[in-house]
Computed example of a mutant assay.
Amino acid sequence: MAGKNIVYFDLETQRSFGDVGGFANKDKMGISVAVTYSTARGTYEIYPENEMDRLGEELVRADLVVGWNHIQFDYPVLQPYIFHTLADQTINLDMMLDLETKLGFRLKLDSVASASLGTGKTADGLDALRWWQEHKKTGDFAPLRKIAEYCAYDVKVTKCVHEYALEHGLLKYDDRNGGIAEVEVNWT
């Protein structure tokens, strides 16, 4: 992977599935903030809603985009903002979808992160929705900063999970019986 630009990616929405009439209407959810981490740049980048075209450019230029359920969730949410058809114009590793193929069920990022890395997420998407409402109501920047921090942390967790998998050739996850199970992966 040396020399390749891997871009880790996540976004937060303005509205919930309930707000937009269900899962089929992901394109109506809106984006409050998106965050990437680029291995070429070595830094995180925070994208407000008015910079989604710049985000699209970064994703298309990446050698590999790594995310958690980004193909079936984040890309459809992002699509109304950008010209590119992202799934067709990017090279992707959707870790959740790959694990679902291997295991036959979906895992939460938190389950894999806590079992593999010993650390979980700091908040959840409902917090981010609440912070967005607060920002819209007050115009205050602080809730927007909270969303960006939460989203950046998710990107960091995604990156750490991917790096763990590359190093160990497997991921651990919390199984349904309160134990920890392992699944082999080959993402090199």
Rank of each mutant, 00 (worst) to 15 (best):
M1T: 07
A2M: 03
A2F: 03
I6N: 01
Y8V: 02
F9L: 04
R15K: 13
G18Y: 05
G18V: 00
G21F: 06
G21K: 03
G22R: 11
F23K: 13
F23Y: 13
A24H: 04
K26A: 11
D27R: 14
K28A: 13
K28F: 10
K28V: 06
K28S: 08
M29A: 11
M29V: 04
A34V: 09
V35L: 02
S38E: 04
T39K: 06
A40N: 05
G42W: 01
G42R: 04
E51Y: 06
E51F: 08
D53V: 12
L55D: 06
L55R: 05
L55K: 07
E57N: 13
E57R: 14
L59M: 06
R61N: 11
D63N: 12
D63Q: 06
L64D: 00
V65F: 05
V65P: 03
G67L: 03
G67Q: 02
W68D: 07
W68H: 10
N69G: 05
N69W: 01
H70Y: 03
Q72V: 04
Q72T: 06
F73D: 01
V77I: 13
L78F: 08
Q79D: 12
P80F: 07
Y81N: 09
Y81A: 13
F83L: 14
F83Y: 15
F83C: 08
T85G: 11
T85P: 09
A87Q: 14
A87K: 14
D88P: 01
T90G: 09
I91W: 13
L93Q: 13
L93W: 05
L93N: 05
D94I: 02
L97P: 00
D98Q: 08
D98W: 09
E100M: 13
K102Y: 08
L103A: 09
L103Q: 06
F105K: 09
F105S: 05
L107W: 00
L107Q: 10
K108L: 07
L109D: 00
V112H: 03
A113W: 01
A113E: 01
A113D: 00
S114Y: 12
L117Q: 05
L117P: 11
G118I: 07
T119D: 14
T119L: 15
A123K: 15
A123V: 12
A123R: 14
G125F: 07
G125W: 01
D127F: 15
A128T: 00
L129E: 04
L129C: 06
W131D: 15
W131A: 15
W132G: 09
Q133T: 03
E134L: 07
H135A: 15
T138I: 00
G139V: 02
G139N: 12
D140G: 06
D140Q: 11
F141T: 10
F141V: 12
A142F: 12
K146C: 05
I147P: 00
C151E: 06
Y153W: 11
Y153V: 01
K156E: 08
V157Q: 01
K159T: 01
K159R: 14
V161K: 00
V161C: 05
H162A: 13
E163L: 07
E163Q: 15
Y164F: 15
A165Y: 00
E167C: 07
H168K: 15
H168W: 09
G169P: 05
G169I: 11
D174C: 14
D174E: 15
N177C: 10
N177H: 13
N177A: 14
N177S: 14
G178V: 10
G178C: 03
G178W: 02
A181Y: 02
A181D: 12
V183G: 01
T188C: 00
